[in-house]
Simulated assay, not measured.
Amino acid sequence: MNPATTALRAGWSRGRIELRQSFTNGGELFSHFLWPALMIVTMFFIRDLPIGTGGLLLGALALPSILGMNAATAMIGMGQQLTADREDGTLLRAKATPHGMPAYLLGKVILVSGGLLADLVIFLVPGMLLVEGLRIGPGSWPTLAWVLALGLLATLPLGAVLGSLFPSARGLGLIQLLFLGVIGISGIFYPLTALPGWLQWIAQVFPVYWMGLGMRSALLPDTAVAVEVGESWRHLETVGVLGAWAVLGLLLAPVLLRRMARGESGSSVAARRARALQRVG
């Protein structure tokens, strides 16, 4: 059988099994519902707050923005998966299996993407019932689909890059704090135009803002564009920025992952396990 076909079949099977397990394990199932539930509670309290004088409500602005923000967290989820499996030796076992690394990575893409889609649905369905002022029709779903697909293409390879750079999940803590800072300046819970100009430029460097903007363009009425930068949904710019991040991640991830895999050995896994036991002790 063709090696690529073998890797695809193994990766698809691995990803489906891990995704199914994530919805049958109590702790992971709880995490799937916790974050959407917290966002729904937030939406409840801000749903009727007005934005400007055009009749737009903060709840309507925030709902699609939160969808984009949650989709961007695929980067953190992918990095956490890689570092956790690196610590417990799962990555080493994948490396030792024929075509194991491509199958492993495909499985993680399916796991993270599938879990993310489920989380978005868990949030979106009650959110649409709670929030007024959305414009959801046949034209909304294609825009949601391409923004989500391009956003995942931009963020998942970046997550693999982060997972290959940090030897443990503890090392990702700083990245998570920086990510929260980026969320704070990306216009998720208020228009980006409310920030100083220099902060607006910084926010527009990162995928979070553009994924939120793309989701807003799909779910908000045309009049809502008045609160956006340049009073435009800027689809071409969205494609350009997310595409640039996707290209960067796809160029860096294979190189860094190969280097990380070459450095994995039984002794390195044992050393990390010993350090973890010392911290616990």
Score class of each variant (00 low, 15 high):
103 A>R: 04
170 R>H: 12
22 S>L: 09
107 G>C: 12
54 G>S: 06
255 V>H: 10
150 L>A: 06
176 Q>C: 04
123 F>A: 05
111 L>M: 10
42 T>M: 15
194 A>F: 00
110 I>M: 15
111 L>P: 03
175 I>E: 08
123 F>E: 00
174 L>C: 04
242 L>C: 06
52 G>T: 00
176 Q>H: 11
267 S>M: 14
106 L>A: 08
181 G>E: 06
11 G>R: 03
216 R>V: 01
225 V>S: 01
3 P>K: 06
265 S>F: 11
57 L>K: 06
180 L>P: 06
159 G>P: 03
32 H>R: 10
203 A>Y: 02
113 S>N: 08
125 V>Y: 08
25 N>R: 12
257 L>S: 02
144 L>M: 07
130 L>H: 02
227 V>W: 06
86 R>Y: 09
5 T>I: 15
181 G>Q: 07
179 F>C: 07
74 A>V: 03
89 G>D: 04
274 A>F: 11
208 V>L: 10
102 P>F: 13
21 Q>C: 13
221 P>M: 03
205 V>D: 07
201 W>A: 14
216 R>E: 02
20 R>H: 14
212 G>D: 05
220 L>V: 01
276 A>I: 13
55 G>L: 02
101 M>V: 15
118 A>S: 13
39 M>R: 01
273 R>S: 15
37 A>P: 00
125 V>R: 05
281 G>V: 13
121 V>G: 05
98 P>V: 07
66 I>C: 01
274 A>W: 13
